[in-house]
Structures are given as C-alpha cells and as structure tokens.
Simulated assay, not measured.
Amino acid sequence: MKLFILCQTDVWKSKASRVCFGVFDTRNKAIDSAKWQQLFNCISEVVVLEVTLNAFEEI
C-alpha cells in the first residue's frame, strides 16, 4: 500500500528544511490539503513523498 507524506521545504528542497504536515492515502488529498492550508508561497515549496507501508527505508 502506498502512502503520501506532505512536506513543506525551502526553495532548494533540502532535507534539513522539511516540515511534515500529514500522511495521506492519495496524492490528490495531499495536494488539496496543501492548497487549503496555503502552504504554497514564493519562499517555500511543497513536496509530496510516496512511501510504501511497512517498509523500512530512508525518506
């Protein structure tokens, strides 16, 4: 099963600047939530990471 993690980061998309905002079951729900929370702006980017449930891996 795939899950999608919604993160906000700086414009360089560095891992150190990621702030996670939620875990969703579809990419569309993650993007809709980012729009509703107004996470898109000129100094930050939104990243939706796709991960597999019950898998041990670096994200």
Rank of each mutant, 00 (worst) to 15 (best):
G22S: 08
C20F: 12
D10A: 00
K13Q: 07
V48R: 15
M1G: 08
C20P: 15
K29R: 09
V46T: 04
V47M: 09
V19N: 08
A30G: 06
T9S: 06
A55L: 13
I31E: 15
A30P: 00
A30C: 06
A30S: 07
K13I: 01
E50S: 04
A34S: 05
I5Y: 10
K29H: 12
T9L: 03
R27N: 08
V23G: 02
Q37S: 07
E45D: 08
R18P: 07
G22R: 05
V51P: 02
D32F: 15
D10N: 14
A34H: 05
I31A: 09
V51W: 12
A30I: 03
L39N: 05
A30T: 10
F56C: 10
S33P: 00
K15L: 06
A16W: 15
N28F: 13
Q8N: 05
F24W: 13
S14T: 07
I5A: 03
S17P: 02
K2R: 09
K13W: 04
N54D: 06
W12A: 08
L6M: 03
F4M: 01
S44K: 08
L53Q: 14
K13A: 08
N54C: 11
K29P: 01
G22D: 10
N54P: 00
I31H: 14
V46H: 06
N54W: 14
F24S: 05
L6G: 03
F4N: 01
N41Y: 12
S14Y: 13
K2L: 10
R27Y: 13
L39C: 01
C7L: 00
Q38D: 12
Q37K: 11
I5D: 00
S14N: 12
I31F: 13
V46Y: 08
I5F: 04
Q38A: 09
K35A: 10
K35T: 05
V48H: 14
W36C: 12
K15V: 10
E58V: 15
Q38N: 12
M1I: 05
T52G: 02
L3D: 03
F21N: 11
I5P: 00
F21I: 03
L49W: 12
W36F: 15
V19K: 09
Q37V: 01
K15D: 04
V51L: 02
C7W: 00
F24G: 02
M1E: 11
T26L: 05
V23P: 01
D25M: 14
N28R: 09
K35G: 00
K29T: 02
V48E: 11
V19P: 10
L3K: 15
Q8A: 07
E45P: 01
F24T: 06
N54T: 05
I5W: 03
I59A: 07
F40Y: 13
A55I: 15
K35P: 00
T52F: 13
T26V: 06
W36H: 12
A34E: 09
S14P: 02
L6S: 04
E45V: 02
K29G: 01
S44D: 11
N28G: 05
K35F: 06
Q8F: 09
V47G: 03
I43W: 15
S44H: 14
T52C: 05
N41F: 13
D32M: 15
V48Q: 11
L6T: 00
R18L: 12
V11S: 02
C7F: 07
K15Q: 07
K2P: 08
Q38S: 11
G22K: 06
A16C: 09
D10P: 01
L6D: 01
